[in-house]
Amino acid sequence: MALHTLLGANGTIATELVPILIENKESIRLVSRNPQPVKGAETMTADVLNYEQVLKAVQGSDIIYLLVGIQYDIKAWRRDWPVIMRNVIDACKAAKAKLVFFDNVYMYGRVNGKITENTPFKPVSKKGEVRAAIDTILLDEMKAGTIQAIIAKAVDFYGPRCTDKSAAGVLVFDRMKQGKTAQWFINPNVPRSFNYTPDAAKALYMLAVKDSTYGQTWHLPAVSPALTGKEFIHLAAKYMNASDKVQVLPSWLLTIIGWFNPFMKEMNEMMYQNKYAFEFDSSKFEKAFNFTPTSYEEAIKATAEWYRQIPADLRR
């Protein structure tokens, strides 16, 4: 029975991953600055910016998942992400543990066509530049053979238990729950890929426990072809018993909102993902594991059922 340690144990993906680890009778250690107790898992407090704390937190681990999310601010990203990556890599080496890094796709930039694991890094955003830099740190270590690691990439996600960290959750399901019109950024007429969080967590575990997957980048499962914003909202409305009308948030309005809202100001540079077709290819994973991503119909239905059943004050 291997010890699986989750750095960033309070996040969306960790929430989905823990039941899978329990079901597979794995030993689990949950690590964050304020880890929440979970039956069947041990908890440990650590700050990933402090190497000694990270080293202590991962001792005895077989597999370490880097699931950390930090403040959505470019100054914080530039300051903290390289430190986090270095600390985790060095701690993994010291503990002789494998690393699974849950990553995003900002480093690819705007891509014409489907985004694959072979798509070159051409960031068009400041945050994309940071992600390209920390990916390169880890990739160089992987190529040098100094660490056994996986980079597992995901786009924006949605699913049950996924609320304020999900654009689809905030703009679509939550607004429908409140009887409001669903919203979409900039262009609801182009395809926009999403990862379904239960699928992403299953895939992380499947990758983590198979030796041959290490030393590679993997895209976590996403349905292809992707739905447009209007198609996504139409399906959500079906299962939320809501209107499928959509309120489009144009780029000029988002700029104005950003004058007063720091998060939206930070989001503006990523809006190319909504203005143009944004299609994520996970066929490498699907072929390797004979895995079929949960259909939009089934996933949206499950997400809608969760939103409809859970009181608003318990979704945060």
Rank of each mutant, 00 (worst) to 15 (best):
I257P: 02
E266Y: 00
K202T: 07
E16N: 11
N261P: 03
W81L: 05
K275A: 12
W77Q: 06
F102M: 14
V18N: 02
T181H: 03
D199K: 09
D62P: 02
Y196L: 10
P82T: 01
V88F: 00
M44N: 04
T213P: 04
K275G: 13
F101A: 03
K93M: 02
Q273R: 09
K265S: 10
T197A: 09
S125Y: 07
Y272T: 14
V130T: 15
F232L: 13
A242N: 12
F101N: 08
T45Y: 00
E52P: 00
G215D: 11
K96C: 04
G258W: 08
C162I: 04
S282L: 12
P311K: 01
V190Q: 08
R110K: 15
F101M: 07
L249M: 14
V111D: 13
P35I: 00
S125F: 12
I20H: 02
A91F: 04
G179S: 05
D313Q: 10
Y51E: 02
Q53E: 15
N112H: 15
T294M: 07
A132F: 01
N189A: 14
L66I: 03
M267Q: 11
N118Y: 03
I22K: 14
D211P: 00
K39S: 12
A97C: 08
E297H: 13
P191H: 10
V88R: 01
Q309M: 15
A304F: 13
G60D: 10
I89A: 01
G109T: 11
F263N: 07
M267K: 05
K177M: 03
L227T: 11
V100P: 06
V68S: 00
A91K: 04
S251H: 12
L220F: 11
L249S: 09
I134Y: 10
E305S: 14
D281T: 12
K153Y: 06
D135T: 13
T163D: 15
A133G: 04
V54W: 08
L249G: 06
N189F: 12
L49G: 01
P191N: 12
I28P: 00
F157G: 12
P262H: 13
A14F: 02
R33Y: 00
K25H: 13
K210I: 05
V105C: 14
L249D: 08
F102D: 10
W259P: 06
P311E: 02
H234V: 10
F185Y: 15
D73K: 03
A222Q: 08
K230T: 12
F289M: 02
H219D: 06
S243L: 01
A182H: 10
I151C: 03
F194K: 12
G40F: 04
S243V: 08
R29N: 03
V223C: 13
W77M: 05
I28D: 02
L55G: 00
D80N: 14
D281A: 11
A299K: 12
V38E: 06
E279P: 04
L314G: 01
I257T: 06
L171C: 04
R33F: 01
G169K: 10
R79P: 02
A288E: 15
N34K: 04
A237M: 07
T5L: 01
G60E: 03
L99C: 02
D281G: 10
P250M: 05
V38Y: 03
I70Q: 09
D211Q: 09
G215I: 05
A226V: 06
V209Q: 11
Y214I: 01
I20M: 09
S166W: 13
M270P: 04
M142V: 15
G145P: 00
K202L: 02
V54T: 07
L7I: 01
